[in-house]
């Protein structure tokens, strides 16, 4: 129980270390030996063709998927399927999904305070104050008492970001956060993410928004067939991709 509370990440320690991580779905190899080290405060954009293992990679970090081989260490704690490990990881790592996944039977505010009150046992008033501050930050405090179904897609995704931030995570995972949005709503979500990046949050973002990658990423990772085949700064990745498959991918999406 106290595992989560006692983690105070050392400054030099990497936020995430993955070594030789593998994952299969039946005979399909989703991840084949992924090695990745993420520094504290680093912003990483992960791209690649569909089925390349991008989502599986970040879902293994908070154990929505269980990896089969290799090791994942988050803030110095080994990631695994034991309830104590899960609790330690999930209170440290926030996640934003492609389809928002807000809880439709609860109000926006209730969505935001659920984790803090039930998992972190925060008093309700304190959790509400913090949630309102974060809703303010994603610019929708006036919607706090509506239900998710009454909000636009862009608003819902901003609430989802606020909901994850309410748990005060040290790492945020984004799984194609703008793919399900109408084009005119993409910007409002990316703006919130840019602001978050500016605040020094450690972020792993699976996205095809190359504008976001150029603006905010420290590193772009290109995946294909369950492996990281190229990683570079956005400037050199976009200007001069090394691999044939990366060139092909960029020519298709840009």
């Amino acid at each position: 129980m106290t595992v989560a509370a006692t983690i105070t990440p050392a400054p030099g320690q990497p936020a995430i270390t993955m070594t030789g991580v593998t994952k299969n779905y039946g005979s399909f190899q989703a991840l084949r030996g992924v090695d990745l080290a993420v520094a504290r405060g680093e912003r990483i954009v992960i791209c690649g063709p569909s089925g390349s293992g991008k989502s599986t990679l970040i879902r293994c970090i908070n154990q929505l998927e269980q990896h089969e081989g290799g090791r994942i260490v988050v803030n110095g704690v080994e990631v695994g399927p034991e309830p104590k490990q899960l609790e330690a990881i999930r209170t440290q790592v926030g996640m934003v999904f492609q389809s928002f996944n807000l809880f439709p039977h609860l109000t926006i505010l209730e969505n935001c305070i659920l984790g803090p009150t039930w998992v972190k046992k925060l008093p309700r008033a304190e959790a509400e104050a913090k949630a309102m501050a974060l809703l303010e930050r994603v610019k929708i405090p006036d919607q706090a008492h509506k239900r998710p179904g009454q909000l636009s897609g862009g608003q819902q995704q901003r609430v989802a970001i606020a909901r994850a931030l309410c748990m005060e995570p040290s790492i945020m995972l984004f799984d194609e956060p703008t793919s399900a949005l109408d084009p005119e709503m993409v910007k409002e979500v990316l703006d919130v993410m840019l602001e978050l990046a500016g605040d020094g949050m450690t972020m792993l973002v699976v996205t095809h928004e190359m504008g976001f990658a150029r603006q905010a990423a420290d590193r772009v990772i290109f995946m294909d067939q369950g492996q990281i085949i190229e990683q570079a700064t956005p400037q050199s990745f976009f200007a001069n991709p090394q691999h044939e498959r990366a060139r092909l991918f960029l020519s298709q999406i840009l």
Binding site: L64, L86, R90, F103, L114, V119, A164
Partner: peptide
């Protein structure tokens, strides 16, 4: 119920019974 409801509850760190009681069963 869509699978995403389970995943969102998991990602927040809710345990099994909290997840069923607060998220899954009411819906």
């Amino acid at each position: 119920l869509p699978r995403g409801q389970d995943e969102a509850a998991d990602a927040l760190g809710l345990n099994y019974w909290q997840k069923q009681r607060l998220i899954i069963l009411p819906q």
